[in-house]
Structures are given as C-alpha cells and as structure tokens.
Design a binder for these strands. Structure first.
Lengths: 178, 178
DNA sequence: AAATAATATGCAATTAGTTGCATATTATTT
DNA sequence: AAATAATATGCAACTAATTGCATATTATTT
C-alpha cells in the first residue's frame, strides 16, 4: 500500500504536518499521488504507532495546534528497503473512456460536451504543472541538482497531460465530423 | 462507481459470461478498465438483483456451467442516463513515480533496473494494443464505422503507452549520465 | 505423475478509499 | 450578517478493491 511510502518519501525531505502533506498532494504532486485528508491522517497515525514517524505538537494562537511529523531512523530503513523493491504499474480506470467506448448510445453532442469539460480540467492541470516547471527551471544549477529526480516525475506529469490533450483533439475532430 | 457502468457498456454490445468479461478486461480493454474476477462476479450479481441485467444458465460438458448475462431495458435506460452524466477524471497513484521522487536515497542502478522492468511491461502492453489496432484497421469500412468509438479509446491506450515510453527513455538517459 | 493452466463460478476476510460529519478560530467573500 | 474558506486535526460509516481460498473437469506443461 503505497500511500504510506508516499508519505515516507515526502517526509524524508523535510518534516511536515498532516495538513501540509494534504496540500502537497492537492497542489504539488497530485500528478502522481492523491489521497484524502482523512486517509492521510489515518496513515500518519499508523506510521507513528509502528515507530516509522514521530511528531511534536506545536501550539498555535488563533488556529488549531499542529502536529509536525518527521521520519525516524526505522522509517528511513523501511523506506530504503521499499525503494529497492519492485512495484506494480498503476491500474487505469478511466470512466471517460468507458463513456466514449459506449458512446454510440448517445448523440455526439453529449460526448463532445463532456470531453470539452475534461479538456478544460486537463488544460488547467497542465498549466499548474508547467508553472511548477518554470519555478524549477529558475533555480540555480546547484538547486536544480537537488530536485533533479522530482523534476523527472514532473516531466511525466506534463508529458501525460500533453499527450492526453493531443488525443482529445483527435477525438473531438472525429466526433465533429459527423 | 463505474465498474457497473463498464459492465453495462460491454454487455450493451453483446451478451457475455462473467468469465468472458473478465477476459475482456484482461486482454481487450484493460487499458481503460481493470477489475478482478471476484469484483466482476459481485457486481454482475448486484446488477441482476436490481433488474439491470438478466442471465440464462447454459450447461456445459467437461466444464462448469455458464451464466450468460444480457442487459435489460431497465439496464439500457440506466446506462443511457449515465452516458449523459458527468464523470470525474481518473486519479493517478503511480508508485514508480513515488520511487523516482525519493530516488536520491538509493543508487541510480536500483532505479534504472526497476524502470527497465516497467519499460518492458509497458512495451509488451503497447504491442498488444498495436495488434488490436492492426486488427481494427484490417476491417472493412462498414465494420470500421461500427467500432469507431471503441477505436478512439484504443488510440488513447496507445498514445498513453507511447508517451510513457518516451518519458522513460528520458529518465534513463538522465540516470545513466551519472 | 505432479503441477499448472484453462474454463467457469463463487465465498469471505481484509485492506484501501470515499464521504460525511465534527471541533475551533480567524479571514474573506457573498 | 451569513456563508464560505483557510488553518488544522480527527471519528466513523460506508463503499470499493484486493487477496486467498474454494469447487469441478479437462488439457497442457514441467
């Protein structure tokens, strides 16, 4: 179950609160992992109970207290073992493709509308990723070296979105030629 | 929950057994939906109970009996309503990207080996999809028209694999330049 | 000969993920 | 003023998916 490993990877970089991690998934690395805040808190608790994470509580004024988690040596050992293991490719379950597959039962307009809506979502997603890339490319060479591997994952996020958008254009052209 | 809708879409094409549907997901349309046979049987049972599917039992010699499911009129109505609804884009949870993101904790060789392994899996997957495309392209124009929309989904399967393989090459070149 | 695969279906325990709800305070928007 | 968002954490019910196991027979592979 790789949510735990995703959390360990992120925390191996720097300590963080559950909320910060939730935001990271929402805004930063959602192109390769997504999880609800409830799931994240649940797993952080479990990881703490087995000793792979520890936390300090920081009291705040005007806001709830923070629990800042950081990875333990045991957590690092587990993470390193996992990083040397084999993982399964992700499974694809894409409801839009199911819709297109069965699309002969509805009018092309219906499909076109939904594909346009998804196109808009993907375009926004791509823009976010390109903004992150712009930020990365503005770093000094030393800093770039530090984030080289995360940048490679971002490249996948970007290339995946771009290829999706190219395909969506192909589909729209085909549907509109009716 | 779109496994039910995936099953309705497939059965709107022609009646099938749970086993055949399971094979279809394994060999034909796994690029946009995957499900275990247990999950498929569970959902077929549910869909039958609510009247969206019905089945006939066919006795076989030397093999277990078959249950051939087909969509009902109620099922078609539900499917049509769903085909006109909005669906969410799929969520991506890719453990290989998590590994690459945290890859500074292991030697490049370790990452390279796992990426090569995934590359092999993806290449085989692409070859399967290209074989299906070859089959489609060998059809008569009339038959092609019949499968035009499923072919568009296949195009996504293919373009997704191709873009992944291009990206993987980029990553390997970067990792091997160390 | 034994193990595995294929054909076909299914039970059930376990794990993973989703959704709604909640607490409490401040800031911003409607 | 009321509603919503942001900051932060969390409980719990429900749904979805995974995994292991099972039945029974034949065919193929080791």
């Amino acid at each position: 179950m790789s949510l735990q490993h995703s959390l360990l990877v992120l925390l191996s970089e720097s300590p963080a609160t559950g909320y910060e991690l939730s935001q990271t998934f929402k805004k930063g690395v959602g192109y390769f992992w997504k999880a609800s805040h409830q799931q994240i808190y649940l797993q952080l608790k479990k990881l703490s109970e087995v000793g792979w994470l520890e936390f300090v509580i920081e009291v705040q004024r005007g806001k709830p207290d923070k629990k800042i988690y950081q990875i333990t040596e045991a957590g690092k050992a587990v993470l390193n073992a996992w990083l040397s293991s084999e993982v399964k490719p992700p499974k694809t379950n894409d409801a839009l493709l199911v819709m297109i597959y069965g699309g002969k039962h509805v009018k092309p307009d219906v499909l076109i509308k939904e594909i346009e809506r998804h196109k808009s979502i993907h375009s926004k997603g791509l823009k976010k990723l390109l903004d992150i890339e712009t930020l990365y490319l503005s770093l000094s060479d030393d800093e770039k070296k530090k984030y080289r591997l995360p940048y490679l994952t971002l490249r996948r996020g970007i290339s995946g979105e771009q290829s999706w958008l190219v395909w969506a254009e192909e589909v729209l052209i085909e549907l509109m030629s009716d």
